[in-house]
Design a protein around this nucleic acid. Sequence first.
DNA 1: TGCCAGGCCCTCTTTAGGGCCTT
Length: 203
Amino acid sequence: MNANSLIILDFETTGLSPDNGDRAIEIGAVKLVDGVITDRFQELMNPGCRVSYFIEDYTGITNSMLSKAAPCGEVMARFADFIQGQNLVAHNASFDKRFLDSELSRISMDYDGQFACSLLLSRRLYQAAPNHKLGTLINYKGIASNGSFHRALYDSEMTAKLWLAMLNDIVERADIDDVPFSLVQKLAKTTKANIPKFLANCA
DNA sequence: TGCCAGGCCCTCTTTAGGGCCTT
């Protein structure tokens, strides 16, 4: 596993639950190496069924666009290669992990990285934020945005910028030089009340 | 036809319920 790099990913899907038959329709991801975006991945994928008007409206991804896209299996096979050997980050990672697991299991492929969740981390670091939606947190941290949320690559890029802002805040609050992935995972499991103590003991 | 998620987290909790997040 590469300790200096990770992948921030985001799925657009036909709905909320692969267990209910929902499928991925777009995957977007960026690769962060030492805090810099060095690579990107973005592809629409054809789920083999029509998406609802709600999803067309929510994402801007239309049935017409998906009819010209490669099948999910082809795209996900390329994406599996892209994330090989990398740890993974997503905003509300439990959601994206379910779709990643579901789509890769359909093509008998797997991945070897571990997930961290920017939502869980932000709930601990930014307890004064109005809420912890991705768009709100981007505004809260003063990160530049053109508001094009709900597309996979854009959301993954915004999540990457939020992630870097959070790592920077951890560095400052804990008075440490860098933030190992394992430390982020521990922080996300620490109760909110114990965060100050946890950060004070990092140095 | 009618139904439709899951994990985290808080609290008026733990023999439970409901809001927050993701599409």
